[in-house]
Each structure stands twice: as C-alpha cells, then as structure tokens.
Amino acid sequence: MQVEAFAAMKAGGPLESYRYDSGPLGAEEVDVRVTHCGICHTDVDIIDDHHGIGRFPAVAGHEAIGVVEAVGDGVDTARIKVGDRVGVGAIAGSCMRCTTCIAGRTQFCAHRDDTVLRGVGGGFARYVRASQWRHVQPIPDAIPSAEAAPLLCAGATVFAPILRYGVRPTDQVAVVGLGGLGHLAVQFLAKWGCEVTVISRSRNKEQDAYSLGATDFVASGTPGELEAAAGRFDFVLSTVTADLPWGDYLDTLRPGGTLCFVGVPPSSITVSAMNLLPNAKTIGSGIPGGIEDTRQMLAFAGRHDIRSQVQTYSLPDLDKALDSVREGSARYRAVLEL
C-alpha cells in the first residue's frame, strides 16, 4: 500500500509530504487509517536527532488513533476487526515468543517494534501499521479520539509504574512537574484513591493541579517549601526533563518509599548512598506499559473520566504544533488531526 506520511528529511527540518510503500500485509499485522496522532517530546527528539538515533527520512508519531482498515490472516477478528476504532501506541509489536513476552511483559521484549524509531512508519501519516495485532488497543467509547491519543504513550507511561511499584489507594504520593505526563499522572493517582501533591517550581499551575485532583501543592522554587515536605510521601513520580536536587526529593520519601523517573533529565542522576540506605528508599523508572497494562489503563481512564487536556492542530499547522512541544508551551498535549 502507498502511504502518504509527513517526514523530516533531515535533522531539525520541516515536515514534508512523503510517500512510501508499506509492502504486503503480514499475517499478524494490522493497518490503521489514522484520524488523530498525539505529539510527544520523543517525536521532537527524533525529528531533531537529539540523541543521534534518528533515521531520515523520519516519520515520527507514536500516539495514533484511527480506524482498522485491514487485518492479516492471523489476526483474531473477535478482538480486532475492520472498522474498529483503535490505537497504535509507542510499541507496535513484540515477538510474543521470548520469556518476557510470555510473562506478559511485552514492553521489555528485546525485539519490540518501537513505532517512533522506525524511520518511516510512524503515526504522522494517513496510515500506520502495527506489526503485531495484540498491540492494537480498542478505544473505549467514552473517550474522544483527540483525548485518547496521548494516553497511548503519556498515559501508558505514568500508569504502568502505579501497577509495577504497587502504589496503594492509601498512599501519600507526589507528582513532580505538571505537564504532558504530569497532568495525566495526577488524574490517575487521584482516581486510584491517593492523596496527591503536585511539586512544581512556581505556583503558575497551582489551580490546574487542584482541578485535576491534587490535594496539595509544593512550589519547590520557594525557599523552604520542598524541605518542609521531608518524610511525607510513599511514592514520588518525576515527570520532568530537568536536573533537580534529587537528594532533596529522596528526602521527601517516607521509609521504604520510591522515587520513580518517567521524565528523562539531561544529566546523570546523582544521589548520596545516605539518601537511600538508612531508610531503605528506592530509585526506579518506568516506560510505557505492555499490552495488558495499556488495556487496563484505557479501561480505567474510560471508567473514571480521565482525559488528556489537548490542543488540536490540522496538517498545515503541524510544524507549529511541533514548536509548541519544543518550547513546552502546549497545555498540556498537542494532537494532530488528519
């Protein structure tokens, strides 16, 4: 099939119409006609080649919502069929044979198909192909497509650690940063039953935090506020892409608490062993969840009215949308409508 996509032809270049042949449909594959695609900071990283792993032409996009156009012969049509509204997220396939896949931890498959790393084949296109049908997620009727798109990466990224680290409804938790990831994390944790504190440098987003379900707010740029939170939290989820005094954030944990990173700071994470050892604290991390984690996340979001707050852009404004992500001005997620 000939696919019209929108590609950066070189690092940092504008996106241009680009056509490629997707080849014959494999037995386990699914073609999805894209109607909406979220724009994640990772897409910008690939287009601008921040980490030296971009493949050009680069068709980014890994939060695609659309309609199933075709399915391979090996697809279980009781679960995925032509005409279904579905999502293809950060992981579009895995081998389904290795020990991690068999254990249900498909996100750790050494042969997983990361949608944004394909070169061509990302979601900024008229069609996107999932290489393994089990990774194609039906979208709950309650969630509009534009609001569903960011859930496939941002939502899956912040929800999976709640499961992995055993966060309890009785826990006191903190979310560091109120952006594309953080605004979803607050909603998930609040609906999970936790008391949620947002930690942000200034009070610019304080009212947003409360409207999303937070019960408290710490302005870390105000002298003494972060220090006053020492020993308060069972779990701290950092969603920021900034270097912060991580020892101070570990100090906000109760004994046995966990500081989990889902945002990627630009420099090494440096802490003293004495921030960890005396009270058996833990540093962890998270990536988008596997097939079942993502299914549970979507069901939970639909059931509890959890929504991405989005700004939508049409195709002529795609580069403008990318700039909003580069500048951090999107409030809180940019979504392309095709």
Rank of each mutant, 00 (worst) to 15 (best):
Q172M: 14
L184A: 12
R164C: 02
G224D: 07
Y165M: 04
V173F: 00
C153R: 01
L151K: 05
V173I: 06
C153L: 04
D216S: 15
Q187M: 12
G166A: 05
L244Q: 13
C194D: 06
V173W: 01
G193Y: 04
D248H: 12
L237W: 11
L163D: 14
A230H: 14
A229G: 09
L184M: 12
V173C: 06
T241S: 15
D208Y: 02
G182V: 00
G182N: 01
S211W: 03
P223F: 09
R201W: 09
G177K: 05
R164D: 14
V236I: 14
G193Q: 11
A214I: 02
A228W: 00
C194E: 04
L181K: 10
G180I: 01
C153D: 13
A185E: 03
S211F: 02
S220M: 13
A229H: 04
A174F: 00
V198A: 04
Y165C: 08
R164Y: 04
T197C: 10
V240L: 13
T239D: 12
V196W: 02
V236C: 08
A242E: 15
G155W: 00
I199E: 11
A209K: 04
S220Q: 10
R164E: 13
T241F: 09
P223M: 12
W246H: 08
A229R: 14
E225C: 14
F188V: 13
F235D: 11
V176T: 09
S200C: 13
R232H: 15
P150H: 04
V173P: 06
F188I: 12
Y165G: 07
V173H: 03
G182S: 02
V236P: 07
D243Y: 01
